[in-house]
Amino acid sequence: MGTRDNNEHEAVQWLDLYGDALYRFALVRVRHSFAAEDLVQETLLAGYCSYKNFSGKSSVKTWLFGILKHKVMDYYRKLPPEQGDENLDEFAATLETMFDAREKWKIQPGSWGNDPQNAYQQKELLAVIFACMDELPHRLSGMYRMRELEGATTGEICDRYQTKKSNCWVILHRARMLLRRCLEINWFDQAAKGK
């Protein structure tokens, strides 16, 4: 670690040292290479500007990843609002059709057979999960990602979205319900047809 005075040098070095690792971290989460590149850039710039505040208690790498983590969460939160309300209605309708009037399953969760064993299958499956997440209303998708990908607590998520905890739990519940259904339609049903 150098002195604080020549931090311009350092910012450039960070790109060499941690650029790829930061990029991978971002790419896994946002899935678009341009968005991931922008996040890396924002992180390095933010790091450069706030280096004087860096306490040195953690390594530079850990510190930069901490900045990136926040940038990623802001990215989820700032996803552009949906086009009109049609989408939202459609999702509300899907949720309603899952149960009958007696609150029993109407669209029954199917048997998914064995969980995918090999890494290749898992990768394919993850691709479908991410595609399904992109389909969700953005607020649901953003909160869901924070919770399941980042392992953020509902407290942290509520703070970011400025919403009540009880509301958070409902939203996460809806996201899980919709995502599971989307995955079933686009992966497991397809696989069953293929057999």
């Binding site: 999960i129 399941e148 990908l149 980042e150």
Partner: peptide, 13 residues
Amino acid sequence: QLLFIRSLLRQEG
């Protein structure tokens, strides 16, 4: 199935 999806995503994260 919910737990399965979570475990995949946590691992990926």
